[in-house]
Amino acid sequence: MSFQDIVFIVFAAILLVSGFRVVTSKNPVHAALFLVLAFVSASALWLLIEAEFLGIGLVLIYVGAVMVLFLFVVMMLNIDIELLRKGFWKSLPLAAVVAAIMVSELILLIKVRGADVKPANDVMHSASNSHALGKLLYSDFIYPFEIAAVILLVALVAAVGLTFRKRKDSKYVDPGKQAKVMRADRLKVLRVQSEKFLEQPQPNADTPAE
């Protein structure tokens, strides 16, 4: 058993256990954290077969961005886990059938096609694949790549254009304007004549009597 095999077994075991815990843990925050662990071990497996671009991408995009966002959402929403688990036993048979079909498909696929699948590092063992991808993106595909960047800019402009509005209830005041205020702008002195004392008004006849 080589060192690589040992590393594979360790990470695969962690992946399986954390995947199982995602489904079974009672606390949604724990489930999300186990999903992070599953992603990290999966990216270690990618690295093991020298697909480092996919490994890095998985960590950066899924762990770094998607899962953090997900955790925020999970923490902000008050999820009633009992409510979610209510239909568990009812839908178990269906889930079991789907799982059985998927497992048998996988076994068939590996048995039939497994013979001619070559390890990835045979195909591209000279160049690192992020190097190769980067080279293609910045040479052959530079034009669509740049246009894709413009599309992201459009998304940004559109999002601001469609959602940003000045809040009507904003209490913000401009300090410059505050400093410039003169007494005459705010204060009006009224000369009030002293008047005779009026009698207490009679209770309103329109008010319904109880």
Partner: peptide, 18 residues
């Protein structure tokens, strides 16, 4: 190229939706 056609189309469409 179909790829540059597609990104051009998306650039046009996304701006139009907004």
């Amino acid at each position: 190229n179909f790829l540059s056609m597609y990104v051009g189309l998306e650039l046009l469409s996304l701006s139009s939706y907004a």
